[in-house]
Design a binder for these strands. Structure first.
Length: 417
RNA sequence: GGAGGAGUGCCCGAGUGGUUAAAGGGGACGGACUGUAAAUCCGUUGGCUUAGCCUACGUUGGUUCGAAUCCAACCUCCUCCA
């Protein structure tokens, strides 16, 4: 599999991005011969991408790095339908407003990974709403629909499970793969796109686009999919302490993002370095060879590199320093998140009022349980009774605040103002 | 259009009139052990003004001292028949 001659495929192959390719040697030749334009579609199902989508962005990144032209396609049109691939049931339909908002949120992170512009190797961002929204139904059926065999579409794995389980697949959803196939053709005509990439769950959709390219344009398209990523212990990528690990900083701070990568399982470190950083492979090999406790240093490098790509080197270094200060020097003050609490009537403040102000708890009931479990410390002492009174005079002198610690990893300063 | 089946907490899934805020599992969170890892073990897992109160088993009404459990209508999905 590693016999690729083109820089792009060799890089992807060596770094573990490749799951399946429609025509390996043909695509390899193409990449040696010309500047290839390839695309990946992103569905606007949330206002930010999360870690699971990072691998797709990295593929576009490497495409540009090896001298080709990546296209990031926003699914403003296909988002109106919703991809049924490997889904048990239909998603709730999104309103056009939601879709627009989500696209606005998703767009933001791309500029960190890709250079956009008008040059031959500059990345392009487009929205398939531009051509899908105004399609004429009858024309579309006659021009595009006639090329699809329902028999064949029903045979794809992506919908088979749904059918086997006797869950309904609405006609609306069934059209998704047709629209995605049509995107491929449209992008070919607009930008000379010849390659579509995506997660392995997109294989069926992409192959449909290749077929449509044959039939409508007599053109040769290619498919390349990445493996579906799980952690070594089998969990899906992208979940953590506080839910999904989003890429947008307003949803997951650089510090928390850094923490996510710092907590990578040992067995995943090398794989993740290859996939999510741009460090050279020999460097990765060296770092991954470290065993035992030393692997923790490698994890820090992983975290810093991944965070630097997304949020910039400066934010990554700050996250690293904050983490080191917290976990290794035990100390603190600087850079701890701080919330303000009104000083008025302070003598009535109890532990639970102060703790709840941190925002670490999703409900007061949850917080009370955590008190009972001994999971909460204030100013270093475990407090089990949430009604414990904490007079203003017990403020911590160095910080001028109450130091609320929840579990081992989270501290928030509550400062009376 | 006709006949039958299903809809339970974040997810899966038990429960078929009362000690049911609802078994069990997964996930998540907290604790122990460690290396801010994995594995393992223990605990927690609707909300609130928490000796109590409120809201919850598709929706709305009804029967009953009392319903997730019975009845009616409606909604959604599945199967078979036309």
């Amino acid at each position: 599999m590693s016999g690729f001659k083109s820089d792009f495929l060799r890089t992807l192959s060596e770094r573990g991005f490749i799951h399946q390719i429609s025509d390996e040697s043909g695509l390899d030749t193409l990449f040696q011969k010309e500047i290839v334009t390839g695309y990946i579609g992103f569905d606007p199902t949330a206002s930010s991408l999360h870690v699971g989508g990072l691998i797709q962005i990295m593929m576009l990144h490497w495409m540009q790095q090896t001298g080709h032209r990546p296209v990031a396609l926003m699914g403003g049109g296909t988002g109106m339908v919703g991809d049924p691939s490997f889904k048990d049931e239909a998603r709730q339909l999104m309103t056009p407003e939601t879709i627009e908002n989500n696209i606005a949120g998703i767009k933001r992170c791309f500029s960190q990974y890709l250079t956009f512009g008008d040059g031959p190797k500059d990345a392009i961002m487009v929205n398939n709403a531009d051509w899908l929204r105004d399609l004429n139904y009858l024309e579309f059926l006659r021009d595009v629909g006639r090329h699809f065999s329902v028999n064949r579409m029903l045979s794809f794995d992506s919908v088979k499970q749904r059918l086997d389980r006797e869950q309904s697949l609405s006609f609306l959803e069934f059209n998704y793969m047709i629209l995605q196939a049509y995107d491929f053709v449209e992008l070919h005509q607009r930008f000379d796109v010849k390659l579509q990439m995506g997660g392995s769950d997109q294989w069926g959709n992409i192959v449909n686009g290749i077929d449509l390219g044959h039939r409508m344009l007599d053109a040769q398209f290619y498919a390349l999919t990445s493996p579906l990523l799980t952690t070594a212990s089998g969990a899906k990528m992208g979940k953590s302490m506080s839910g999904a690990v989003w890429l947008n900083a307003d949803l997951v701070s650089p510090y928390d993002f850094w923490q996510y990568w710092r907590n990578t399982e040992d067995a995943d470190v090398e794989r993740f370095l290859k996939l999510y950083t741009t460090l050279p492979l020999n460097e990765i090999a060296r770092l991954s060879a470290l065993g035992g406790t030393e692997i923790n240093e490698t994890k820090k490098i992983l975290a810093t590199e991944v965070t630097a790509l997304l949020h910039g080197r400066k934010a990554a270094e700050e996250a690293k320093q904050a983490a080191e200060a917290f976990f290794e020097k035990g100390a603190t003050t600087e850079s701890l998140p701080t919330v303000d609490l009104l000083k008025a009537d302070w003598e009535k403040r109890s532990a639970q009022v102060i703790a709840f102000a941190t925002g670490l708890f999703s409900s007061k009931s949850e917080m009370r349980r955590k008190f009972a479990e001994g999971a909460i410390r204030i100013n270093g002492e475990i407090i089990k009774d949430p009604d414990t009174k904490l007079p203003y005079s017990e403020i911590e002198s160095e910080t001028g605040a109450f130091r609320v610690q929840f579990g081992k990893k989270r501290i928030v300063l509550v400062r009376p103002v």
